[in-house]
């Protein structure tokens, strides 16, 4: 199955969106049904262990580029996520491992696979950001394969549900961006500095505006 679309985020910049989408914490909080999304060493993940580890963890949403830089997605990095996809009474939890296979401002792509007790999926997706008149356009595409019970029994719902997950993800990203902007504006008033200006340099520096930086980190 292939899905693709363009999501328009208003009143924001490519840099802001890039920064946001580079932040696993923001992504975790924007993905519907995502219990955790954390970096792991390799694709062989013990989810039971991770579940225990993550029960009491605290994750700070932030707009601070320094903090985000510490935890930003890295090309070649592996990430484990526990995702519950709810479709009415159907609520499988997928143990998912994602690998960022390409990340170069303003494009990112990843491959991943997830499994639940009787179903599994594989996907590869990519997105690229571009500026529009009043914000940013995120062009995304995903190729997904579904296996097992859901493929056999849930054929009718897979496509619309996948679309819904993406839609809710981006609208949640939009909300979080807005919150960050509000917070940033608050900071700006207090500091009387221009966070956007100073951020930009930082974004360039730590988030790998040039591809060569990110690959060796």
């Amino acid at each position: 199955m292939e899905f693709s679309g363009t999501f328009e985020l208003e009143e924001t910049t490519v840099d802001e969106v890039w920064l946001a989408l580079s932040d696993p914490v923001l992504v975790e909080q924007s993905l519907p049904g995502c219990e955790f999304l954390i970096r792991v060493d390799d694709t062989d993940v013990d989810f039971d262990e991770l579940r225990d580890e993550t029960t009491d963890r605290e994750v700070e949403p932030t707009a601070d580029p320094e903090v985000i830089a510490e935890r930003a997605f890295e090309e070649g990095g592996h990430y484990a996520a526990l995702m519950q996809i709810s479709v009415g009474p159907v609520n499988p939890t997928f143990e998912t491992v994602v690998t960022i296979d390409h990340r170069e401002y303003p494009e990112m792509s990843a491959v991943g696979e997830g499994s639940s007790s009787n179903s599994s999926f594989e996907m590869s997706s990519g997105m690229s950001l571009s500026e529009t008149d009043d914000g940013v356009a995120v062009e995304w595409e995903t190729e997904a394969d579904v296996f097992g019970k859901i493929a056999q029994m849930g054929q009718r719902v897979v496509n619309p549900v996948a679309n819904r997950v993406v839609k809710r993800f981006f609208s949640s990203v939009q909300d979080q961006l807005r919150e960050r902007q509000l917070a940033a504006e608050g900071d700006a008033t207090a500091d009387e500095s221009d966070p956007t200006e100073s951020d930009r340099g930082l974004v360039d520096r730590v988030l790998g505006r040039s591809g060569s930086d990110s690959s060796d980190s």
Binding site: G88, P89, V90, N91, I150, M153
Partner: peptide, 23 residues
């Protein structure tokens, strides 16, 4: 818990019988 209301059951029970739903 994962909790569902059971009314007539004609959407829920088929989903449970086929293993899609497991409240």
């Amino acid at each position: 818990e994962e909790t569902e209301l059971l009314a007539g059951g004609h959407s829920l029970l088929p989903a449970m019988k086929t293993g899609l739903s497991s409240p």
